[in-house]
Nucleic acid binder design. Structure first.
Lengths: 346, 346
DNA sequence: TACTGCTACGCAAACGTTTTCGTGTTGAAA
DNA sequence: TTTCAACACGAAAACGTTTGCGTAGCAGTA
């Protein structure tokens, strides 16, 4: 086992100074041609690569981006990571991942752990618990220390930073308009409690679309599910809530769900009620994932373009990192949604 | 914006030496009680946290684990990451993620990038291209530099390191035995080309199970799909190949597929052929993912326990990192598979 | 007084780089 | 012969830590 070779070792071996070696490798013309070549040959032979940690310490830059997300076993988030990694690598950065697991404490601890020199900036999506407690001091402190943050998807007005979001409002409207144009008269929405901002916006889009089409909204058509039911262990509870929705609205002919799982589960309930999809009732989900594509019937969805979100977030962050001027202007980029039509709608 | 405070700044402010500050914070009894308290109070006030990079350089340890996987938008791999992250965090390590995207070159480049001081050890699963080319020099070099590697799932005998694998052979047998016990007489396997080791093992398990039950294997019942068809863009091609399988074997009554997607697609084809599941034909998949759980009918699968694999791999790596003795013994841990019965089998 | 032994602190090296500045050696011009 | 620029290289500081060792000051003892 041979340890990694350092400048010092090369210097000693070739009987020159460390500076000479360093300059030779960086092709400084301060060094004579023969010395330079000799050093370079030796370095290549021993496969010399500069030590990243030493460089980081010297330059006070790590060329590493920290990601903090609530959950990684999730189609949307992993797509975002893929986007971030793609851009980061292309621009010479590495990516370090922290999981908050939807917990406020883990979010705080993980951020502190990474903020002490390990990374140059953050890309993150806020955990549900943090949204609930509305405690954003850790973001403010991080930003205050001069470490830029880019938030995506679950963002919050109280924090001043670059943001990449999906136009949930418009996306939702797009879905409802599609249902209306396909002949639906009684459209329900299955959404989450309001503290998750994206759920709130999607509900608002639903209401607005109805209004614009002179369709009166009915409270019984709005089902706000407790978030904890999204956890895969409480599927039966979720199913029962949706069954209630069907029973209360016999003429239901369209369903818009704010995530895949709700939509798939709703389709299952519809099948139980002997309704034909899409003839009797149509479905649209949100977040284009693997479930939508491979369900039977396949599910029409609003795609969020997770990868694009990641790419944009990474570009925003790296731009800020590499701009020397410290401007305090922040932008919010909106990634357009897209309606992907499949078999669950006419 | 206030930059992070350093020992030097505290020292200057309190008019003591840097060493005094450092020792005070580490509660060295070399330092007098009053000085110690003064320094600690000041440090707390300014929220001093030691700089990780400086520590890494000094200790020649980063307390960071590098993960290199072929793909992150993948239920199995993200579960593994979750397992790694869980253990790593618990034991005070961070996790840095590299994606090979199934490419040999990216795997090599990414590994070199991380190996230069950024991490203490690797946990990885080999890319398909690397498996195809059988070029493992980058693994050998990394290990030679004294950086431990733990491989999982897609491993290879040629590299000497700790490994965590699934008992694909037994898992596959488990599945086939289940089908046989449920009355299947003509069981097909949908698998990948042999260069992916896990596909090969699963095929062997299939053959062995048949043999043990005195059922002759038939070549027409073994469908080896080109891997590129797993990419979601070639679903029709995949579907056609499976249709061929059905046409050639009219009495087909059981299908074992080495991944979720193949299984789901096969069920779709069966439905097209008006076969009832599980009455006329039964299905078992491999890799328990979100598709299996929410398909209709839900799919019986062999679960690989991705999270456990990640946890075990992380424990193995950290154990090796923290053991000072340099023992050259490597172990291969086998994670048991589990048959999860759902609606696609009787 | 002279010595011993604490206590409480500072100095400096080390981790591996990069970079600024200084300097010894040439050869040529004055 | 002196002077000077050009060349080729080395010394040292800096990034932020930790730690072994040296030492000034002081009290106690012989």
């Amino acid at each position: 086992m041979k340890r990694k070779v350092t400048l010092k070792q090369i210097a000693k071996e070739l009987d020159v100074s460390i500076s000479t070696v360093s300059k030779s490798l960086r092709n400084s013309k301060e060094i004579g041609e023969d010395t330079r070549e000799k050093v370079q040959a030796f370095a290549k032979l021993y496969n010399y690569k500069p030590n990243n940690i030493a460089l980081s310490l010297k330059n006070r830059k790590t060329r590493t981006i920290g990601i903090m997300i609530p959950e990684i076993v999730h189609h949307f988030f992993s797509k975002v990571i893929r986007g971030i990694e793609l851009i980061a690598n292309k621009r010479g950065y590495n990516v370090i991942v922290g999981l908050s697991n939807e917990s406020f404490d883990k979010e705080v601890i993980n951020m502190e752990m990474l903020a002490n020199g390990s990374i140059d900036g953050f890309i993150l999506s806020i955990s549900k618990e943090t949204l609930l407690q509305q405690d954003y001091h850790h973001f403010h402190e991080t930003i205050n220390q001069g470490m830029p943050i880019v938030m995506f998807d679950r963002v919050v007005n109280e924090v001043n930073c670059d943001k990449v979001i999906v136009d949930d409002f418009q996306g939702s409207k797009k879905a409802i308009n599609k249902l209306i144009n396909s002949g639906c008269k009684n459209i329900a929405i299955i959404t989450t409690k309001d503290y998750v901002n994206v759920g709130k916006l999607r509900t608002q889009g639903y209401l607005q679309a109805l209004e614009e089409n002179q369709i009166p909204a009915k409270a019984s058509l709005i089902l706000k599910v407790d978030d904890r039911l999204v956890s895969e262990d409480h599927l039966e509870a979720l199913e029962q809530e949706i069954e209630q929705l069907f029973k209360q609205n016999k003429k239901l002919d369209g369903v818009f769900a704010v995530n895949e799982l709700y939509a798939i589960t709703a389709m299952k309930v519809a099948r139980k009620f002997k309704k034909k999809i899409p003839e009797d009732i149509q479905f649209i989900g949100y977040t284009d994932g693997v479930l939508s594509k491979h369900a039977t019937p396949s599910l029409t969805t609003i795609s969020q373009h997770g990868q694009k979100i990641g790419e944009k977030a990474a570009d925003l962050l790296i731009d800020k990192l590499e701009k020397d001027s410290e401007d305090d202007s922040y932008q919010t980029v909106i990634i357009e949604t897209e309606l992907i039509e499949r078999e669950s709608t006419k």
